[in-house]
């Protein structure tokens, strides 16, 4: 039913290969130095050469991101349910949440460093701060999508508000919730890396800053590549979970 055609399966790989191909031969043709724009083969070589360090920092970035994201999920669900259930909470909290979401999180990091010192804690908080908002909005939106007629059917049978919330509100919010998870998890990476580049001595963000300080641009790109791959893997993981758990919502 939901099976992709062979073409659809191959398409992303073709695009990736073409991009690397153009990049490789474009940089060769233009004769660009690796410290301006490294070729994919330079990046690959760097990846191999520094593999142990990259692995160490990548694992650190991953655990930081997942920790921050987990907190964001808990916070996002809580606020989303609150705001979706109570109109008062909605009106009270929405403006401040939008305000908070509009603040560039990189501006937050120096303050966090003053409070918690350089290291993992500011990164976890930044990852969380940048990724919880889409979850709140989606959970609240999902709760609000209950069809008025369905609500009438339930109420005419004597169901109370919290019955409707449990029986209809929560299930209808699930597809929205899972859709937000996959977006949020990639945002969490952004938060972690921002914080690591500004104030950390560990993580891929730190590795890239240190490398660019030495004009080791291929290593910077190797770091970006690793982040992208981790992002794709987590995104796909959550997308898979979404399809498995809320397949009823998709045609």
């Amino acid at each position: 039913m939901n099976s992709k055609s062979l073409q659809e399966r191959l398409a992303p790989w073709v695009v990736i290969i073409v991009v690397f191909f153009v990049w490789e031969f474009g940089t060769r043709a233009l004769g660009l130095q690796p410290f301006i724009l490294p070729k994919p083969t330079d990046v690959y070589a760097s990846l191999i050469r520094w593999w142990d360090q990259i692995q160490f920092h990548a694992v650190h970035t991953l655990t930081t991101t997942v920790t921050g994201f987990a907190i964001a999920v808990a916070l996002g669900i809580t606020l989303g349910l609150l705001v979706g259930y109570s109109r008062l909470a909605y009106h009270a909290l929405y403006p401040i949440m939008i305000g908070f979401n509009s603040v560039p999180k990189v501006a937050l990091v120096p303050v966090l460093v003053i409070w918690f010192g350089i290291g993992t804690v500011p990164a976890i908080i930044t990852a969380c701060a940048i990724s919880f908002f889409p979850i709140v909005v989606n959970v609240a939106t999902g709760l609000a999508t209950v069809e008025p007629e369905l609500e009438d059917v339930l109420r005419s049978l004597g169901a109370k508000r919290h019955d409707i919330f449990l029986k209809v509100g929560l299930p209808s919010a699930m597809p929205y919730f899972f859709a937000s998870l996959k977006v949020s998890v990639t945002l969490a990476f952004v938060g972690t890396i921002i914080s690591e580049t500004v104030a950390s001595n560990r993580g891929v963000g730190y590795l890239m800053i240190a490398a660019s300080g030495r004009f080791d641009v291929p290593l910077v790109f190797a770091g970006l590549f690793v982040i992208a791959v981790m992002g794709i893997v987590l995104y796909e993981g959550f997308a898979y979970m979404e399809r498995k758990l809320t397949g009823w919502a998709y045609r």
Binding site: L150, D152, V153, R155, S156, L157, G158, M174, W248, A249
Partner: peptide, 17 residues
């Protein structure tokens, strides 16, 4: 609501899950 009515609308409003 007395619970003695059944209702149906133009929109079937079923629970898709």
């Amino acid at each position: 609501p007395l619970g003695i009515v059944g209702m149906a609308f133009q929109n079937p409003s079923l629970m898709p899950w």
